[in-house]
């Protein structure tokens, strides 16, 4: 009987968060001290070394790591800000809006350059460009496209090869995909032409970078647009199969951001975790933080990195989003 009750108590948290996680992992779960709950969009495989390093330095702390999509993260966190101590996401716009709505804790002690943080609440710790990733086999004997225009031409030249074998984010589901799409659309009309071409080739839509890269690796698709190059690069086993191209016409670079919930029970531990992330990126230890660190040479004036500013919220406006999605569906779903 006692065992039964203990079992229920142990399993209670999992019932409470009867969420369908992409992944969920506990680190240092038998630690004596507190547990911090991290809600993240970053794959466990990539982020595990970071957390392991953290618990190594803070052995009394346990970390629970939950992975889900960027859009889910926003909805989950908004509906229950008390349930998580830290939120890490690549969707800068959604993160910024959470901070703007006053749900994040201001960390006065964390020192970070002004362009890489917002309101001393949202801290950027990686700098990851959106990339065109190709399966080398599909381009064997053909020039590798360097720009979006090149890609359009390559697809138009061999529609039979690419039909049903091009992929990109479903921006209706993926927050990051939406962010990349809106920033691309801001930068150039080329984006819309590319979408029309991809739409005409029965584009496959993905929720996440991981799946897209898996499909690329096994040859299901030949080209993926706006994938996180850092994810592709992190998978060493794909090195010989995939080419990661940063479009030379205009690169779109995202900064992965982290924040602490305003209602956290462990403000100090959570703050330490943020500091840990910042330290890791500034020391640029590839073995622990596999994602590329902040580009310190480029300042705020650099237009290729999406700036942390209130303007990110414009595309989240209901009307504007509805309009943008309508245009996108118009172009992609034919």
């Amino acid at each position: 009987m006692c065992y039964f009750i203990a079992l229920i108590i142990c399993l209670l948290p999992s019932f409470l968060f009867a969420e369908e996680w992409e992944d969920q992992k506990q680190f240092n779960q038998f630690a004596s001290g507190a547990t911090i709950r991290v809600l993240s969009s970053t794959d466990t495989a990539i982020f595990a070394p970071v957390i392991q390093d953290f618990v190594l330095k803070n052995p009394e702390v346990a970390v629970e790591y939950f992975v889900t999509g960027t859009t889910d993260i926003e909805q989950l966190f908004r509906s229950n800000p008390k349930a998580f101590d830290l939120v890490i996401s690549s969707a800068m716009d959604l993160q910024l809006k959470i901070v703007n709505d006053g749900l994040a804790l201001q960390l006065e002690n964390v020192r970070h350059p002004a362009w890489a943080q917002w309101r001393q609440s949202l801290f950027a710790f990686t700098s990851e460009p959106a990339a065109i990733v190709i399966n080398r086999d599909a381009f064997a004997g053909y020039p590798v496209p360097q720009t979006r225009q090149d890609l359009i031409q390559a697809m138009r030249a061999r529609p039979s090869v690419f039909r049903g074998r091009v992929g990109t984010y479903d921006i209706r589901k993926s927050g990051l995909g939406y962010l990349f799409a809106t920033q691309d659309a801001r930068a150039s009309e080329t984006y819309w032409r590319l979408m029309e071409v991809m739409g005409s080739l029965d584009v496959r839509l993905y929720c996440c970078s991981g799946e897209m890269i898996d499909d690329l690796a096994d040859g299901t698709i030949a080209v993926a647009y706006n994938v996180l190059g850092s994810y592709a690069a992190a998978r060493h086993e794909n090195k010989d199969v995939l080419d990661i191209i940063l479009p030379s016409d205009f690169p779109t670079t995202m900064m992965r951001t982290a924040m602490v919930s305003k209602l956290t029970n462990q403000p100090e531990l959570a703050s330490d975790f943020i500091q840990h992330l910042i330290n890791l990126q500034s020391h640029s230890n590839k073995d622990i933080l596999m994602l590329s660190p902040l580009n310190t040479q480029s300042d705020y004036g650099d237009r290729t990195t999406i700036a942390l500013e209130p303007a990110l919220m414009t595309f989240l406006d209901t009307l504007k989003r509805r309009k943008f999605l309508a245009e996108w569906e118009n172009a992609v779903i034919q």
Partner: peptide, 8 residues
């Protein structure tokens, strides 16, 4: 209303 990016 297509809020211009610049307005924010």
């Amino acid at each position: 209303i297509d809020i211009p990016y610049a307005s924010f």
